[in-house]
Design a binder for these strands. Structure first.
Length: 217
DNA sequence: TGCCAGGCCGGGT
DNA sequence: ACCCGGCATGGC
């Protein structure tokens, strides 16, 4: 890879799309809840569930902790896998309440330690943890998701099969450890992924045209 | 109309 | 240490 191909990709995407203003969500609480709801799920379905939570005045960890799991599931039904997600949101709510009662308090502290603690919550894996850390907590961790992998794979920068940690380390080694940039970079990868690299779509016309393409990836 | 979406977990090799 | 099925709605 050139001096820093990941920086070049960032520059190309930033030039094409500009600031994305991510994560969609008005508060750290909404961001964290959205991170769970969007697991393997299209964002349009998550939006409905978040609206329903707002309408029920339940976009709040104390309220979620107090809700019956079944009732919570009914509210977030449109997000899919709603029984699983109700359980996971309850687990996250319990975690938040045990760490001060607000997501801001729960996420305060040294990044590595908070990450380890988050990963202990049932239903919070590496990607969800990192999305919460970065977009709700302002921690400098790079979020690796399906779009990240697909875009890099299609442009020859990943072979496929690399671990989450390996992909993440590559970004974090190549880039300045900067919350703002990590935030923006992940958002840009999702944008280019949605426009040009969806599973059954093609990369034609994408801003990374200077790189090799493998549209079967 | 089937396949897919901004994963994660548990059980089986 | 992997690999796989289950979870489930709504859009194209």
């Amino acid at each position: 890879m050139a001096a820093n191909e990941l920086v070049e990709i960032y520059d190309a995407l930033a030039a094409a799309y500009g600031p994305r203003g991510w994560w969609p969500g008005d508060s750290p609480t909404e961001v964290a809840i959205g991170a769970v709801l969007t697991q393997n799920t299209a964002w349009t379905n998550v939006e409905r569930a978040i609206s329903a939570l707002k309408a029920a005045d339940c976009l709040d960890f104390a309220r979620i902790a107090a809700l019956e799991e079944e009732a919570l599931g009914a509210i977030i039904r449109s997000a899919g896998t709603y029984r699983v997600k109700a359980r996971r949101l309850k687990a996250l709510a319990a975690w938040v309440l045990a760490r001060g009662g607000t997501i801001e308090a729960a996420l305060a502290g040294e990044t590595g330690a908070v990450r380890v603690a988050l990963l202990e919550v049932a239903g919070i894996g590496e990607e969800t943890a990192d999305a919460i850390l970065l977009y709700a907590g302002g921690h400098a961790v790079f979020v690796v998701d399906a779009y990240t992998r697909r875009v890099l794979r299609r442009h020859g920068l990943l072979a496929g099969g690399e671990s989450y940690a390996a992909v993440q380390a590559r970004f974090e080694r190549a880039l300045p450890r900067d919350v703002r940039m990590f935030n923006e970079y992940h958002a840009l990868l999702v944008e280019v992924g949605k426009r040009h690299c969806r599973a059954a779509a093609r990369c034609a016309g994408c801003p990374l045209g200077h790189l090799p393409h493998d549209e079967t990836a």
